[in-house]
């Protein structure tokens, strides 16, 4: 038992070098944070910031009580909002399917040439928010539902396309190989080998995106693309905060309901 002195008595979690790197990483992050903070708050007027609690209390008192009677004007715009989300999702999915097949390594007709294009479409659509698409489309085709629908559709391509092409790449190659061995054409291999395998993913992704789109379409009206957001914008412009609170309440209920529906449907499919 005396030999125990031969063992090291100091134990460290990591090697000294690894620890040094970890600390350096944290230090760099903290420095970067303060540097960014400095730049960001250069032009901040701190008087406004310190005034914020008073402003908040003021807005809060104006929001209450909500003007419930305003609700009767909101049903039409709410119906429009749901239509924007639904039709936009359908349009987006229709456009996303071919993009996904072009982007998936195992179904793309040309990995060298078409795949990068499809991937770029997906990234471009994903990086630009529906509100920005709506801003552009309102300027181009004028305010209204159509701009909202197209904006939602364009935004959905990236999301649906990305998840769908990942699902296609994860399909079981053995099932596809077996269909190929029967002498099926490329199109037949697609509908018999790949499509049945991705069907649950397809419906799940579509319904999930519909749920997100309901959320996004509620605010498209802020830039003139129709729906309940138009009413929000109008109420904000006239500083009718007691109407704003009614609209927010309605949006909240709609979002919660759509989330519930989408969870139910996804559960039923999978």
């Amino acid at each position: 038992m005396t030999e125990i002195t031969d063992y090291k008595q100091v134990w460290t979690y990591r090697t000294p070098r690894a620890r040094l790197w970890t600390w350096a990483g944290w230090f760099a992050l903290v420095t970067l944070f303060f540097w960014c903070w400095q730049i960001m708050t250069e032009d901040t007027i701190w008087a406004f910031v310190s005034d914020a609690p008073r402003q908040a209390a003021d807005i809060g008192s104006r929001m209450l009580p909500p003007r419930i009677s305003y609700m009767s004007e909101l049903w039409g715009p709410l119906w429009d909002t749901i239509n924007i989300a639904t039709l936009g999702t359908i349009g987006g999915v229709i456009m996303a399917v071919p993009v996904a097949f072009l982007a998936a390594r195992n179904t793309s007709p040309s990995v060298r040439f078409l795949r990068p294009i499809a991937l770029f479409i997906i990234v471009a659509s994903r990086s630009i928010n529906a509100l920005i698409w709506a801003l552009l489309l309102v300027a181009i085709i004028g305010p209204g539902l159509l701009a909202g629908i197209v904006a939602i559709a364009l935004r959905s391509i990236g999301f649906v396309g990305k998840l769908l092409y990942e699902a296609i790449e994860e399909t079981d190659a053995r099932q596809t190989e077996a269909v190929q061995a029967t002498g099926a054409s490329a199109a037949q291999v697609l509908i018999y080998g790949i499509v049945p395998q991705i069907m649950p993913a397809f419906w799940g992704i579509s319904v999930f995106r519909w749920d997100i789109n309901i959320r996004e379409s509620t605010i498209l009206g802020l830039v003139g693309a129709g729906g309940i957001g138009l009413k929000l914008q109008a109420s904000l412009n006239t500083l009718a905060w007691n109407q704003v609170s009614v609209i927010l309440l309605l949006i909240l209920v709609t979002v919660v309901l759509s989330e519930w529906v989408s969870a139910k449907v996804r559960h039923a499919i999978i």
Partner: peptide
């Protein structure tokens, strides 16, 4: 061609 059991299109 006959494969291992998993080569049916499952769905």
């Amino acid at each position: 061609m006959i494969f291992q059991e998993y080569s049916l299109v499952e769905r």
